[in-house]
Amino acid sequence: MAKEMNNRQAYYNYYIEDKYVAGIVLLGTEVKSIREGKVSFNDSFCLFDKGELWVRALYIAEYKMGTTNNHIAVHDRKLLLTARELKRLEAKMKEKGYTIIPLRVFMNEKNLVKVEIGLGRGKKTHDKRETIKKRDTERELKAYIK
């Protein structure tokens, strides 16, 4: 079974206000690569184009057993959401400071690849320091309790 891939950097750089689970349009070799856990979220983000939501810069490594029909590692991939969710997200994106970030890629119980996306507001530098302090104190408490 495939492991779940998380975007830890997103929680560090953004306050996540809403989360949505979206389907993603993939090729066969991309699904095989995701099952092997070959996904990287570096600088990936979501954007709207003609009323559709796309994820950009999501790296899915080429499948090592693929043939000449292997996929391109980095290209725009369409996300599948309901019309109501798309309208809600597009309205929020027009407000200043909001962005949509992929948070994790996973396979559901039907073995379909899903992407959890989050509506986030960027953190300032001092907010990031607070996040680091909070994480360090929690880590120390866990070590002290054990």
Rank of each mutant, 00 (worst) to 15 (best):
N42I: 09
E85V: 02
E85M: 03
E109S: 13
V105S: 08
G66F: 06
R84E: 15
I72F: 05
H126L: 14
Y11V: 01
R84I: 12
I24G: 06
A143S: 12
F45L: 07
E17T: 10
V113I: 15
E130A: 14
K134H: 07
T29Q: 13
D136P: 00
A73G: 04
M65P: 00
K114W: 03
K146G: 13
I24W: 11
L86I: 10
A91F: 10
L89N: 05
L141Q: 08
L58F: 06
K128Q: 06
I117Q: 02
K87S: 15
I101F: 00
K64N: 10
A91K: 15
K110P: 01
L103N: 06
N7W: 04
R88A: 11
D76A: 12
Q9H: 13
N111G: 02
R77C: 07
G51F: 08
E130H: 11
L86A: 06
L79G: 02
M65V: 04
M93W: 04
V105T: 13
G23V: 07
A73Q: 14
I72N: 09
E109V: 10
Y59F: 14
L27H: 12
L53Q: 06
A10C: 04
H126P: 02
D76V: 03
K50W: 05
M107L: 15
T82L: 03
R129N: 06
K64F: 13
L89R: 05
L79R: 02
T29N: 15
Y15H: 11
V21H: 03
K87D: 15
A22N: 02
T68V: 07
S40G: 10
D76L: 04
E85D: 15
E85W: 01
I16C: 01
L27W: 09
L53F: 06
G28I: 09
I100S: 01
I24H: 07
K19N: 10
V74F: 09
E90P: 01
T125M: 09
G97H: 01
T137H: 07
L119I: 02
I132F: 05
N111W: 09
E109I: 11
R104I: 01
R88V: 03
G97F: 00
T125E: 11
R35Q: 14
A22R: 03
E109L: 10
W54F: 15
S40A: 14
A91G: 03
L81I: 02
V74G: 04
Q9N: 14
V105A: 11
A73F: 06
C46I: 10
G66K: 04
L119M: 07
R129V: 12
L47K: 14
V39M: 09
K64D: 13
D76Y: 08
A83L: 12
N42A: 14
I72E: 14
V115H: 06
M65S: 13
A91E: 14
V39C: 09
E109Q: 11
H71D: 04
F41C: 04
D49F: 11
E116P: 00
K114G: 01
D18T: 06
I132L: 13
N69C: 06
R129L: 14
A61Q: 14
K128L: 03
R139M: 09
V21P: 00
I72M: 08
Y144G: 00
E62V: 08
V39N: 08
H75T: 13
V39E: 07
D43G: 03
I72Y: 05
T68D: 12
H126K: 14
E116L: 01
V55Y: 02
H126E: 13
T67K: 12
M93P: 01
L53E: 07
Y63H: 14
M65H: 13
